[in-house]
């Protein structure tokens, strides 16, 4: 394609996006747009898969039938979301197998938040409530994005995440209304998850390398700082309504703007954790790698039976 053609295509592409149209798999798109989306959707898919682990750890210990059943269902949903997202990335030419191999090789990033430990049952509730609320704020924004398959996947995922939030919140309410020990357990979990959850929306706008371009092409429709503020405004009243504390003395509504002020998290910590050096990164990847290695014979057998090699069967990756 000549440079002139490329320019015309790009102009038409950007005009379509400006009109609010969705880009679909067969459509012309700049390579950079495609790469950006594969990177983002891949990271998102990996986050769902790795995100099964911190809460999944508590399935054997969940107290009571209701908690046990809802927790299995929730973690199962994360696997389903991962499947849906790998599918969305495949519409852009990536394969599940390639993406999973990148994750296992430590080359792909995923959400910072799943690299923190879950030492108590309260973590299950607080992840469902805080982390999934932050995820829904972000994903509702992504559901407005320009790439059709991703936007539609986000709509469906948000629908299910709403149940996850309810599941988490409900578990925390039980603790907040429970014995002093249960209450302390809930507060301790809120304290530990507060800053990692604030970091989930990504680095602040002024140092985010991807935000500007992502906004122009409507890969994102809000900046990291906007998403973060929206989350804080939503969650702080909920935390306080349960009689729990936000672990930030600066957290108060700003009379002028109506938004909550809050202390910014340690951005160096975010950078370290996303780049593989968080408290549980090694443990998470090791668990995924073990599942992958232990399951190799199953994938090979299924591929052999369907007469395909594993290389050409992305669904089995």
């Amino acid at each position: 394609m000549s440079e002139q053609d490329e320019k015309e295509h790009l102009a038409e592409f950007e005009a379509r996006i400006a009109r609010g149209e969705k880009v679909e798999p067969g459509d012309w798109m700049p390579e950079e747009y495609r790469h950006n989306l594969i990177r983002m959707i891949g990271q998102h898919a990996h986050s769902e898969i790795v995100g099964q682990l911190p809460e999944g750890k508590w399935i054997p210990f969940a107290p009571g039938f209701r908690r046990k059943l809802t927790l299995i269902a929730k973690v199962q949903d994360e696997a389903g979301h991962g499947q849906l997202l790998y599918r969305a990335a495949e519409t852009l030419g990536a394969t599940r197998q390639e993406m999973i191999e990148e994750l296992l090789a430590g080359k792909a990033k995923y959400s910072n938040v799943f690299n923190y430990p879950t030492p108590t049952w309260a973590d299950v509730g607080v992840i469902g409530w805080l982390v999934d609320t932050a995820a829904v704020v972000n994903q509702s924004m992504l559901a407005q994005g320009s790439y059709g398959p991703y936007a539609r996947a986000m709509r469906r995922i948000c629908y299910e995440e709403a149940f996850h939030i309810k599941q988490g919140y409900d578990a925390v309410v039980a603790l907040a209304k429970g014995t002093p020990e249960q209450r302390a357990m809930a507060q301790d979990a809120v304290n530990r998850w507060w800053y990692p959850t604030l970091m989930m929306s990504g680095p602040p706008d002024k140092i985010s390398e991807h935000t500007e371009r992502a906004m122009r092409w409507r890969i994102k429709t809000k900046t990291n700082d906007q998403v973060r503020q929206e989350f804080v405004d939503l969650i702080v009243p909920q935390i306080r309504a349960l009689g729990l504390d936000v672990p930030d003395a600066e957290c108060a509504p700003d009379k002028a703007t109506g938004h909550y002020q809050f202390t910014r998290p340690d951005w160096n910590e975010l950078k370290r954790v996303v780049n593989g050096d968080g408290p549980c990164n090694a443990e998470r990847i090791a668990a995924r790698r073990k599942a992958h290695d232990d399951g190799r014979w199953v994938r090979e057998a299924l591929a052999a039976k369907s007469g395909q090699s594993t290389k050409t069967a992305p669904l089995l990756a």
Binding site: P60, K68, A73, V75, Q76, A79, D294, R299
Partner: peptide, 17 residues
């Protein structure tokens, strides 16, 4: 449910859960 998050393929993770 011990397979949840640890299955050989995503489809079986979902099935066994």
């Amino acid at each position: 449910a011990e397979w949840t998050g640890h299955s050989p393929i995503l489809e079986e993770d979902i099935a066994f859960s």
